[in-house]
């Protein structure tokens, strides 16, 4: 386990260092996330009293589109500067590479969502500081990060990666989005953990499945 954890943390350290230097991912995705919610807010005419119905859908649409934007960049720097090849010729297991990249994406997305959530809460008029909503967002984002990392690794090797990633990502991650919207609807409505019913465990099951399957497929994707 320690043998797996060390390279994972090394990869995360490198990606965070590069992001702190360039700031090209977090800032652009943050601005994009804000724009999405502003557009949705006006387009759907979010009148008082409709927050419970509309907010979860808008929230997860914004998170999903932001995730696509973030995941599109996940491997680009490594591919362009040869860092991916450097990783592949190092004695680091493919699982560690995958988990390192997925953990970096999870951290970036959670940071972006933490910044966006209070703004969404004010604009869409709902309470963001509930344990159930935060847990739902964490589990949903974990699913996005794991699936997105795999498809980002696939897409970066194609010429039309910007189109390829959403085409691959959305069909697979759809169950997570549906369950996350349902769970968030109940969380925004003030339901407790029990009140979320099967939706939260369902996201957990999908996350667990993705965490097993995606690293395994990733090893094959990285073979030339």
């Amino acid at each position: 386990m320690k043998g797996l954890l060390r390279p994972v943390l090394v990869i995360v350290w490198k990606d965070i260092l590069l992001e702190l230097r360039s700031r090209d991912l977090v800032v652009s995705v943050l601005v994009f996330g804000l724009l999405v919610v502003v557009v949705f807010n006006f387009a759907l005419n979010n009148a008082p009293g409709r927050a419970e119905q509309l907010a979860p859908g808008i929230l997860w649409s914004a998170f999903a589109f932001s995730a696509i934007l973030a995941m599109n960049r996940a491997f680009v720097r490594d591919q362009e500067q040869g860092g991916l090849e450097g990783l592949l010729i190092s004695p680091v297991s493919r699982d560690a590479i995958f988990l390192g990249k997925a953990l970096t994406s999870l951290i970036f997305m959670l940071l972006i969502e933490a910044a966006l959530l209070p703004v969404y809460a004010v604009m869409l008029d709902f309470s963001a500081l509930t344990f159930t909503l935060v847990l739902t967002i964490f589990l949903g984002t974990l699913g996005f990060a794991v699936v997105g990392t795999l498809f980002s690794a696939m897409a970066v090797q194609t010429r039309s990666r910007e189109i390829m990633l959403p085409v691959l990502f959305f069909p697979v991650v759809l169950p997570v989005i549906i369950a996350a919207v349902e769970a968030s609807t109940r969380a925004v409505g003030g339901e407790t953990f029990v009140g979320l019913g099967r939706w939260l465990p369902l996201i957990g099951v999908f996350d667990a499945l993705f965490l097993v399957i995606c690293p395994w497929v990733f090893a094959y994707v990285m073979e030339e």
Partner: peptide, 28 residues
């Protein structure tokens, strides 16, 4: 094995030392 190819496999926005520390950590 140590490999020198057509590309440096180094990150442009990291210093030489940071790149080498990164690879040293990857190689344990």
């Amino acid at each position: 094995i140590g490999v020198v190819g057509h590309r440096s496999l180094l990150y442009d926005d990291m210093t030489c030392r940071e790149n080498l520390v990164y690879y040293a950590r990857l190689f344990g």
